[in-house]
């Protein structure tokens, strides 16, 4: 097994030829590659001008500016985040990523840089007021997201959780009446409501707040340290609060520090 593992590692190294993503290398090269969500508004999505926009994109821009290097945005889906980081195709992942102890065995997380509010949304005739009421319901959500991790932990026996491949499939499933309850970010639900006013989409309850963290490859401690100072500085300076008002329409709440 050890031998096989080292063979595979050798093959991956030979093909990937990973560039070291230590802070000094980024500064020397003058470029930082940052993974942002390809389609997860308001964190990151393709804007009307054909440029990526969103909270995560704005944070990435500030990071490049403060480092004094050029920014290369790499739009990714949620399942691409870790392979891209592990193979050094990106230096940082700023992609509405949640932290938990199991994930932290694989990569390093910064302090929280963004809030994330997710909730359960449904039509008025669906009578649920708390997570316990989900028993017997079919709940649609996007697999691997913060709300997936959270709801999987706390859902009562008898809840049928259907995990879709991406945000668009989840919304299609809800719109076509395939699931009773939609669990997603509140901004996503607000957009859906605005586009489909006849749905009568109601907020049934809010899941626990689970803020977002920036992902750094294991071992890049000086980059992680710099990112943490950056986040602290932007929290104290009020820039993150401005972004929160712009993209989420509310003040930045208290965010945990690692």
């Amino acid at each position: 097994m050890k031998k096989l593992a080292s063979l595979i590692t050798a093959a991956v190294v030979a093909f990937g030829a990973p560039a070291q993503a230590e802070l000094s290398d980024i500064l020397e090269e003058g470029v930082i590659q940052i993974a942002v969500p390809e389609n997860f508004p308001p964190f990151g999505s393709l804007g009307p001008e054909g440029e990526y926009v969103g909270y995560d994109v704005a944070v990435a821009e500030m990071i490049a500016e403060d480092l004094g290097v050029e920014l290369e945005l790499v739009p990714v889906t949620s399942s691409q985040r870790i392979p891209y980081l592990e193979t050094d195709r990106v230096d940082l992942v700023i992609s509405s990523m949640g932290a938990n102890p199991e994930r932290a065995k694989s990569i390093m997380f910064s302090s929280a840089y963004a809030p994330f509010y997710s909730g359960a949304f449904a039509a008025p005739d669906i009578e649920i007021a708390a997570v316990e009421d989900l028993s017997g319901m079919t709940v649609g959500l996007t697999g691997g997201t913060l709300e997936d991790l959270e709801l999987t932990e706390i859902a009562p026996e008898g809840t049928e959780i259907i995990r879709f491949g991406d945000n668009a499939a989840t919304l299609s499933a809800y719109l076509s009446g395939q699931v009773d309850v939609l669990v997603t970010g509140n901004t996503v639900a607000a957009q859906l409501s605005e586009d489909n006013p006849d749905l009568g989409l109601q907020t049934k309850f809010i899941l626990n707040d689970s803020p977002c963290f920036i992902g750094v490859k294991k071992g890049n401690t000086d980059l992680l340290q710099w990112v943490n100072v950056f986040i602290l500085h932007k929290k104290l300076g009020g820039q993150l609060n401005e972004l929160s008002l712009e993209y989420f329409g509310q003040e930045l709440p208290e965010l945990p520090t690692l």
């Binding site: 949620s78 870790i82 392979p83 592990e86 065995k105 694989s106 691997g144 991790l149 995990r163």
Partner: peptide, 15 residues
């Protein structure tokens, strides 16, 4: 495939 994606999103052990 979904079982794989589920485990990947919990553990981040993609490879």
């Amino acid at each position: 495939t979904q079982a794989g994606m589920f485990i990947d999103s919990r553990t981040f052990r993609s490879f």
